[in-house]
Write a protein that binds this DNA or RNA. Structure first.
Lengths: 141, 141
DNA sequence: CCGTATCCAACAGGATACTG
DNA sequence: CAGTATCCTGTTGGATACGG
């Protein structure tokens, strides 16, 4: 029974890969993995998404406090990029002092789900990776 | 019924986020998202994993041909890094000319599954992102 | 064939100072 | 408060040449 499930998953994965590579051949310019990495492979985007997911509607400096180590410049750059891609909204309130709030769009929440899956895999696999790395390094003297 | 499912998912996601941020607080040095990006946020790692998943056991230059645009240097660097983390194996055959084959480990196959999920999300969301971007840019004159 | 070594350009991103 | 502008450094990764 377990074997059957594993086999089904393997077949399913292989089909996905076939589709994926087929799409790639049809349209030479279109490669989802490259696109993912180009858009979210920077230092701060995923962390911003994650914190907005956890906190809901959040102000600029509030967010800056939550994302440890980010500079004001990079938070601005990151948020503008996410806004441009339709992953977050930016709401300006005409007050003094000014108030600006950021929030995930439905699209952004979809990405958050994917990030969480990946983060969970990473969390679960971390021990194994660290162990593999130590083994590898120890064999180089 | 649909609403119930959506609510369940929202609750599930929120629980995951709570756990995630709780872990982060307990161990200040441990942040899966940062770790993911540090390890796989480079230009070539995910593409290498993806191609090894599609092709199975693959030789160095064979892989170089499949990953469009990668230099010899970067393929070496990328493969070494993945090997160090226990995601791929490197098998050297004592022949002339030398033959070296790379293959995903079970751990690497697990990562592949995650990548595929993310790639599928990206593929499905690409139209929406492109549209959002065009809207954003058009509003800047 | 499968690398390593060296050099170098491009760019991400940090520090700092200034504004509406 | 929420940015923008400017400068500057470190790292990524491409090109090239060479070695086992």
């Amino acid at each position: 029974m377990e074997v059957t499930i594993a086999e089904d998953q393997a077949i399913d994965l292989h089909k996905k890969l076939e589709i994926f590579f087929h799409v790639k051949e049809e349209n030479h310019e279109f490669c989802p993995v490259r696109d993912i990495m180009d858009r979210f492979g920077d230092k701060w985007s995923l962390l911003a998404i994650l914190n907005l997911g956890n906190s809901g509607k959040t102000r600029f400096n509030e967010l800056k406090g939550k994302i440890e180590g980010i500079s004001q410049r990079m938070l601005t750059v990151t948020l503008r990029s996410l806004e441009r891609d339709g992953l977050i909204t930016r709401t300006i309130y005409a007050e003094v002092p000014p108030r600006v709030e950021y929030e995930l769009t439905p699209l952004g929440k979809g990405l958050l789900q994917q990030i969480m899956e990946l983060a969970q895999w990473a969390a679960n696999s971390m021990d194994e990776i660290v162990k593999a790395r130590m083994d590898y390094d120890s064999k180089l003297q």
